[in-house]
Design a protein around this nucleic acid. Structure first.
Lengths: 336, 336
DNA sequence: TTGTATGCGTTATCAC
DNA sequence: GTGATAACGCATACAA
């Protein structure tokens, strides 16, 4: 048994390679009879398309590259999985590239992906703004940005959750639950989404006549270096009236919950807490964790749809799609 | 600006395509001067290798396919990420295929991957035994199985954690902590890893003179259908002396913990609990969850190493590599 | 040391 | 409705 090519198929079926190709791609005209004949041979031989040849000839790869900072992150892996699912159904395969938030790795991947002739790119998050100059202007590779603001908006389509809304509603929820001194806890990454969440939080405070002040309302967390717990305690010592925390993500929220518990600060009685991403862990903590859920399914759908439109030259660039989020309320933010 | 080919480069540099190819691949002989000349042109033009052509010509793709049941699973995504990292460093790119535990999808992917000419395959878990008959015996695609027992061991290399050890040690730990009636909680998937864990659990009981009896020591959970909590309560009603649970994975362990808490059954006082996989959520529950940690880094390393050996025809087939696990003890299994 | 020519498997453009 | 053939970009055997 060998690797059959359409040439072999043609020979066995007693037709020409052109005919075989036409049958396979259901493209052009041929009689029902030859069709059956060819299909039978294909079945019998177990013929498999050589995509390298097809790609070379067509200058198309039916492959989409996905750039993601960290596939083990809950939100990212969720989006990626959905993307993969949808793309597969549409006949595309995906190359998932874990950039580990490293620019060099990202660049290296970009070159490889270009070389492999991907038809399109989906770029997910990443700390900095993204600019992709497919150096060959001739064959610009279309790309979609998810949660990562592109430098040149006119070259791409930008999809993201409504981070502003999520933060705004969270802050309002805390206030409505009686919090007089809600704060926002965030890391020092200046991603678009983080900025939006901060803005939403600030605006909610403003709307409720609480003047925002970084010293009093912003707990800044240096993920890598400083001691998490000490960080929190110092802040609370300076601001003893804090009674609500909106955390920029669940990971931080969970750590906060742990530290608070360790220091006998009751959640939600003394301090109410809302996270972001609705990680599954939030269902199992005591108290269970309220969080903002992003609609990954919708995001993935929009991304694929837009990208395929761009690939077929039908899509309009420069758009921005904002996907609404939903607040999932659990015990950590509700006054019994 | 267009997409340059080596032909263009050759023309600009005033040499032949053969020379350019030799320079690019550092293969064959050429003068230092021509080398410099060619490299300069490549730099200036921003030439990018067309891998479709290269693959077609070389019958090699520098691409590895990874089949994984569910990328959003903690253990899987961890392994995949590490695989990707290691492979990337070695110049390979990866196509990650999420099979959603569907045989059809798996088969479809296999065909595509073959067509794309992947140099090798890494198959992770999946419910059933795996048999990959690269239908073209001519060009057998080498593959590695992680946590999934292949039907024909002689065609592949089988890598897995020491599930037996993890289960055995967990059971012994429960017993040493005073449990008289430890049980194992498991879903109805008959994967290799599940079987091994069951065996380890049984053997630990035997060693400690506790005769294993499915009715008394095996809590079977139908993930999809039945009501989880009711399931547990019924079992506990029949076996009121249960004082320790080894759960086949953390997901189930977390659910158990939730149900126990809901019914005021204290963990670890009344019932001690140990999970499997050391999901990050276990750090944030109350009590924190003891669990068996798999060494994903080591698994990934072995997998890549073995696969590359197979690809270069140097590896020996039929081997089995067992990677030790470690028991991470937390509050859920320790008597205060 | 370098160049010429061939073929990898496919699709598309012609002819017939 | 079908067949012959060029072309895609690359690596390599063989010539020079």
């Amino acid at each position: 048994m060998k690797n059959y090519s359409i040439k072999d198929i043609a020979e066995i079926a007693g037709v020409s390679v052109a005919t075989v190709s036409r049958v396979i791609n259901d493209n052009g005209r041929f009689s029902a009879e030859t069709r059956k004949k060819v299909l039978k041979v294909i079945e019998e031989t177990g013929y498999k398309m050589n995509y390298s040849a097809k790609n070379l000839r067509m200058n198309k790869s039916f492959t989409i590259g996905i750039l993601v900072p960290d596939i083990s992150n809950y939100f990212f892996s969720d989006v990626v999985q959905q993307l993969e699912e949808i793309l597969f159904a549409k006949g595309y395969s995906t190359i998932i590239c874990n950039t580990s938030r490293s620019s060099e790795k990202e660049l290296a991947y970009l070159r490889i992906l270009e070389g492999k002739g991907v038809d399109g790119l989906i770029v997910i998050s990443g700390a900095e703004e993204f600019e992709f100059d497919s150096s060959s202007a001739e064959k610009k590779i279309p790309y979609i940005c998810i949660d990562r603001e592109p430098k040149k908006k006119e070259n791409t389509i930008f999809i993201s959750s409504n981070h502003y809304q999520g933060a705004f509603e969270s802050a309002e929820e805390l206030i409505h639950e009686g919090c007089q001194h809600p704060i926002i806890a965030m890391h020092n990454q200046k991603s678009t989404s983080a900025k939006e969440r901060l803005k939403g939080f600030k605006d909610a405070l403003k709307k409720n006549s609480i003047p925002f002040n970084a010293k009093q309302h912003l707990l800044s967390i240096d993920i890598e270096h400083s001691d998490f717990e000490q960080n929190l305690l110092t802040f609370l010592k300076k601001n003893p009236n804090v009674d609500g925390i909106f955390s920029i993500n669940d990971l931080i929220a969970l750590e906060l919950m742990l530290s608070l518990k360790k220091n006998q600060i009751d959640v939600p009685k003394k301090i109410k807490l809302i996270g972001f991403d609705d990680t599954y862990a939030g269902k199992y903590t005591t108290p269970t964790l309220s969080s903002v859920r992003q609609n990954t399914g919708l995001i993935a759908n929009y991304a694929v749809e837009s990208l395929l439109e761009l690939i077929s030259k039908k899509g309009e660039l420069g758009r921005q799609i904002v996907v609404p989020v939903s607040l999932v309320l659990r015990e950590s933010s509700t006054s019994s």
